[in-house]
Design a binder for these strands. Sequence first.
DNA 1: TCATTATGCAACCATTTGGTTGCCTATTCA
DNA 2: TGAATAGGCAACCAAATGGTTGCATAATGA
Lengths: 109, 109
Amino acid sequence: MTFVNEESVFRALADGARRKLLDRLHANNGQTLGQLCAEMDCTRQGVTKHLNILEEANLVVTVWRGREKLHYLNPVPIHEMAERWISKFERQRLAAMHQLKQALEGDDR
Amino acid sequence: MTFVNEESVFRALADGARRKLLDRLHANNGQTLGQLCAEMDCTRQGVTKHLNILEEANLVVTVWRGREKLHYLNPVPIHEMAERWISKFERQRLAAMHQLKQALEGDDR
DNA sequence: TCATTATGCAACCATTTGGTTGCCTATTCA
DNA sequence: TGAATAGGCAACCAAATGGTTGCATAATGA
């Protein structure tokens, strides 16, 4: 059951290192911790902490293969964020642009 | 010129109080600080800090009307986030779902 | 004009965050 | 079997974050 907690997802996405990890899994899914540590500019333990936050937000799911831990992207939370939150603002986008312009014009009238 | 800094946008969206402020502007655009303070469970100064972070991320634009400060939603950053970042993951959504399922099946095979 | 209203600014505080180091455990393979 | 490899866990630390209080300033209107 994939229950998505909005708060934990937004929090997880707030950090550049974590977004980079998601980008790297997006480019190459199912990587081990060791693989993900390469090209990250912090220690393995630091990367683990970031991955744990991504896992708690359900953005990443892990599978053990022997002594290796494989990390897979879970596309559900991002999809739900897009559906529930982003799209709400996207719908009123042009109207909001118009209101903003009107306000800025009236400013120095 | 609306240049959007990805980092500041994600950071700004990470806090529930700030998302609530955006939601309230979405429901009723152009509100004053005083209006926005109602229904928020922190002081006016606390709300100001949140609004400043939203403004620095260009998610909110302000216009002075006399002694009142009006707050308007700027839909551009959320739109660009959707276009640049979200959509990249949405495109590979079904493929990622499939890879995840395969990995989870292989798990207890 | 003078009280009221709307907001800004600075200092301060506790908690969270992102990162480290050090050590432990489990799997692999020569 | 024993060294090398992959990763976990705990303690610690500095800096950032979210919040407060107190006081200052500017616009409004009776």
